[in-house]
Structure formats: C-alpha cells, structure tokens
C-alpha cells in the first residue's frame, strides 16, 4: 500500500515536466487560439465578435488560394519524394562499391538547415546568371523565371522540399529493406518469381509499415512547410506560393490581425489532427505489419 502511494507521487513527478511543457506550449496554445478566434481588434480595443472570423475565412479568396496551394504542394512533394527515396534505397540495397559514398551524398541535405538550402537554391534559380538557367539555355532550352513566374515558383519550392528530405526518407526505406530476410527473397527467386513479382509480393508488403510512417510525416510536414516560402518567394508572385503557415504569419505579423491569424491556426491544427486521425483510423488497418509490435 505504502509503496503504491509513494510511486504515485513518483509517477506524477516523473511526468510533470514533460506534461507541463506539453500543456503550455502545445495544448494551451491551441485553446487560446480557439478563444482568440472569436475576437477582433480595433485600434487597441479587443471585442467579442462571435463567428465573424470564421465567416471571413469562408469567403477569404486569399485563404482559398493558400489552401489550394498547400494541397498542391503536398500532392507534388509527398509522392515524388517517397518515390525517389524508395528508388534510391532499392539501388543502394545491394553490395556495391562506394555505397557508403552514395549514402553520404544522398543523406547530407538532412543536416543542412532549410534556411541555408533556400539560399543555395535561390542562387541556383537566379533568372539570368543562375546556373540552372545557364544549363537550360546551353542545351537549347528556354530560360525560366524560377521564382518570378507563379507556376515555376511553386515548382521551385517543391524542388527544395524534395531535395531536403529525399535522403532522409531513403535512409529509412533502406533500413526497412535491409530488414527483409534474404531467405524469403531467395526462395521466391527459386520459385521462379521475376524481379517485378518479387518486389510486388514480398518487398512492398514488407516495407508497407515503413511507407505508411513516411507517408504520415511527409504529409504532415508538407502542411507545415514555411522556411523556403519565407526565404525564397515570400508567398509570391502574388500569392502563388503562399502556404498555410506563411499566411498565418502574414496575418499576425504583417497585418497585425492576431485574431484572424488565430482562426487560421485553429483551422490548420484541426486539419492536421484530422489528417492524423484519417491515417490511423482509415489507412493503418490496411497496412501489413510483419510482426505484432509496432
């Protein structure tokens, strides 16, 4: 009995620091945004305005553009990054000379700050003397206003997003691939299964839980991307590359409308939670796990 009550205090104290900070910097902010989203500022006066901010959000054409941009960004970055990552992982998943070198080469962008990556790519993307345009024109192509043209601006930030994360995801795929028992593949080979069959019926199921995991973080990350938007395009031209977090930032720290920014924050966090719920309730049950524990 005594031991129990003593342990109860201990458990409480053990959990306290983590949950204290978790509460104050993750849950409470969500709540306080929720409360702020019902207010409005006039000069230095703040008043309750009911659902006005939500109404505004519903009819805010910039917000619609931003949301669409963000979907576009996710749809472009997530599958491409995963595909490239898996491709590279498959290439490296065999004994070849120099594999350590390749691994380093693919992985290093993980340790480059996004801020630095944005600068590097901005430099590569320069309109007239940027190296990419110089290459393109050298090979007879048409030089491109990478960050100055709305379509290419989106592609630019997508490229940076892929470049930064592909090596990281590749490494996770590689771990999963290396965990596949060789005997399984060998017996399939002896049974006459070609490389495509082997990939489809053994490799793919065996890495599906890994893919699921990467998919979630990639989607969640794509909805919170902001560094390269801030540093490369400032959401422009127009609002062509304005993404959710940047729009929140703009409303709060450029337009000084914290209440509307809070409304957008509530929207984004709720969206993220819904996405998470969707993945775990709808997608995960269909994922094959090789062992009971996850």
């Amino acid at each position: 009995m005594r031991k129990r009550s003593k342990n109860r205090l201990r458990i409480f104290l053990y959990l306290l620091p983590t949950f204290f900070f978790l509460f104050f910097f993750t849950y409470f902010p969500y709540l306080s945004s929720f409360i702020d989203s019902f207010a409005e500022r006039r000069g230095n006066l703040i008043s309750f305005v009911g659902l006005k901010n939500y109404e505004r959000m519903a009819f805010d054409s910039v917000f619609h553009t931003v949301l669409w941009n963000n979907f576009l960004y996710s749809i472009l970055t997530v599958p491409l990054t995963m595909l490239f990552a898996l491709g590279l992982a498959l290439l490296l998943n065999r004994k070849i000379a120099g594999s350590a070198f390749y691994r380093t080469a693919f992985f290093y962008p993980t340790v480059i700050p996004m801020a630095a990556a944005s600068m590097i790519w901005l430099y590569l993307f320069l309109p007239t003397y940027g190296i990419i345009n110089r290459f393109i024109t050298l090979w007879g192509g048409k030089s491109v206003e990478w960050v100055g043209d709305p379509q290419y601006a989106m592609i630019s930030i997508v490229i940076v997003g892929i470049w930064k994360y592909v090596g990281y995801y590749m490494m996770i795929f590689l771990t999963a691939l290396q965990a596949i028992p060789k005997s399984l593949l060998e017996s399939a080979y002896l049974d006459g299964a070609g490389p495509v069959r082997r990939f489809g019926s053994i490799v793919l199921p065996m890495i599906s839980s890994t893919s699921f995991f990467i998919l979630i973080i990639a989607v969640i990350n794509s909805f919170q991307a902001v560094d390269q938007v801030y540093l490369m395009t400032r959401g422009g031209p127009g609002n062509a590359t304005n993404l959710m977090v940047y729009y929140i930032y703009q409303n709060a720290f450029s337009f000084w409308n914290f209440q509307y920014a809070s409304t957008l924050t509530v929207f984004l966090v709720t969206l993220l939670l819904l996405i998470t719920l969707f993945f775990f309730k709808v997608v995960e049950p269909r994922v094959y796990y090789e062992s009971g524990e996850t």
Binding site: T18, F19, L22, F24, F25, T26, Y27, F28, P29, Y30, S32, S33, D36, I220, N221, Q224, V226, V245, I248, Y249, A252, F258, A261, S262, T265, L268, V269, L272, L273, I275, T276
Partner: peptide, 21 residues
C-alpha cells in the same frame, strides 16, 4: 497518445499563440 500528438504539430504552426505566451 496526447504526448504523441505533439509529433504532428510543429512549433511553426503555433507561432501566433506561442508568441503571445
């Protein structure tokens, strides 16, 4: 579970309320 949800919400998403705090 509450703890793990933190993985889904990056600090940049909560800049506004956290800035106020």
């Amino acid at each position: 579970t509450l703890l793990l949800l933190q993985l889904m919400i990056a600090p940049q998403t909560l800049v506004v309320p956290n800035y106020i705090i």
